[in-house]
Amino acid sequence: MSEIRELLEKFEHIANNPREQLDNYLAQGKKAVGIFPYYAPEEIVYAGGLVPMGVWGGQGPIVKAKDYFPTFYYSMALRCLEMALDGTLDGLSASMVTTLDDTLRPFSQNYKVSAGRKIPMVFLNHAQHRKEDFGKTYNARIFKQAKEELEKICDVEITDENLKKAFEVYNENRTLKREFVKLAATHPQTVKASNRCHVLKSSYFMLKDEYNALLKELNDKLKALPEEDWDGARVVTSGVITDNPGLLQVFDDYKICIVADDVAHESRGFKVDIDMSIEDPMMALADQFARMDEDPILYDPEIWKRPKYVVDLAIDNDADGCLLFMMNFNDTEEMEYPSLKQAFEKESIPLIKMGYDQQMADFGQVKTQLETFNEMVQLNRF
């Protein structure tokens, strides 16, 4: 158990100290590239011998970004731009930026005219009609353009051979994360909700081969333990991101076991592997993107697919309910809420909606909601 504790503490330290990680890689003579949400193909970065560094906002002041955005834009985007402007991201050789929602589109242009002067932007305008052949062809082309731009900015060569090696590393990474998520659900006493988040979050700040070795060690040690009993609530979480330290402490204090998640910062990002049988690496990336579903940010003509998917996550993992964290001013997620609410009501599974902001420090309302939820869980069990 002490070895597991040491590994969890290592993941936590990395998750909470991305600047230290970046400085360590720079000291080794490596170049790093910022990977902004969502679905940027960071395998291209890795294949160039570069370090992908995830940029998903975080806690901290928002001052300079207000010169470019109105204050009612969701906090993650504001904080991402602030970090690029205030020096937090200094040392990056480039940033990879996508445009998959109505905030990320202006974000890309605001980044270009501000922080882009210091940290060049590699721009990806994904095709939302991603499943049709023409959509795959288009996405393969923009991935190729991103590769060529990255080669020019960072003075590297990204070969097909290295791309395929990167695909193997990243497929292993996704497999290990999916395995860890299941192990965390069956070992809730050993892996608290905060531990689970730190393990997954640290992946954004490590070279994936290094992370894979560490996560494999943790998974092997968890598999050697018997499954653990749990008298707290078992939940599915949903939303964009839930890594606020105050929120994680509330999860632990109120004995919340996350048995599965529909969180963009977590499981949504590693659901789909790359098909290694596809010869053209860019088409393989486009095919992977085509098979990504159940995400409000991605267009899908089957509009009722995600509600069923999230409900099934709760049913299949014997969850007591779903905690939905609705990021303030995120219109994309808000528009999906009515259909999600209806699906959970149909199955008589509690769905607790909570307003969320990365800058939140007072979680009094969340505590009240969780107290009520825990009482409901206990009554249902007896």
Rank of each mutant, 00 (worst) to 15 (best):
K341W: 13
H265Q: 14
M292H: 08
L247N: 12
F325Q: 09
V250R: 08
I258F: 07
R291K: 15
M327T: 15
D243N: 14
K305H: 12
F251C: 02
L248S: 07
E279D: 12
F344G: 12
E334A: 14
K223S: 09
E217G: 11
Y254M: 15
A224V: 00
V311M: 06
I241F: 01
A290P: 09
I241E: 15
L313E: 02
M327N: 13
E294G: 03
V263L: 06
S339K: 08
M276I: 15
P245F: 10
G232H: 08
N330I: 03
L218K: 07
K346F: 12
G246Y: 05
A319I: 02
L323V: 10
P296N: 07
E345C: 05
M354D: 11
V263G: 06
A319P: 03
Y309S: 08
E333V: 02
D243G: 07
I256M: 10
I274L: 07
F329G: 04
L313R: 01
M327E: 15
C257H: 08
L248C: 00
L247P: 04
P296R: 05
P350R: 01
D220Y: 01
E228Q: 12
M326V: 15
V240C: 05
E217Q: 15
P350Q: 13
Y337I: 14
C257I: 02
L324R: 01
D273N: 15
G321H: 03
L313S: 01
M335E: 10
G269R: 09
I352C: 05
R291H: 14
I258S: 05
S238P: 03
Y337E: 09
K341T: 08
A343S: 03
A224P: 00
I352W: 07
A233I: 10
I241T: 13
M292C: 11
I297Q: 02
S267Y: 02
N317C: 00
A314L: 01
W230K: 03
L323N: 06
F325L: 12
L215T: 10
E228L: 07
M292K: 13
N219P: 00
I241K: 01
T237G: 13
T237C: 13
P307I: 04
N219T: 09
K346C: 10
M354I: 15
K305V: 07
C257V: 09
R306H: 05
I315D: 03
I352R: 09
A314Q: 01
N219A: 02
L340D: 04
W230N: 11
G239D: 05
R268L: 13
K223G: 07
I274Q: 02
Y299N: 06
K221T: 11
L298M: 04
D312L: 00
F251K: 06
S348D: 14
Y309N: 07
L215R: 13
Q249L: 00
E347V: 03
I352Y: 10
V259N: 01
Y356T: 13
I241N: 11
G355E: 15
N219Y: 04
A286Y: 06
L323H: 09
R234V: 04
D252G: 02
L214Y: 07
T242I: 15
P338Q: 02
I241S: 09
L351M: 14
N317I: 00
R291G: 11
V272C: 09
V263M: 08
F270I: 10
D318Q: 11
G246P: 06
L351F: 12
G239F: 08
V240E: 08
K346Y: 07
K216P: 04
S238V: 02
A264L: 04
R268H: 02
Y356Q: 13
V250S: 07
M276L: 15
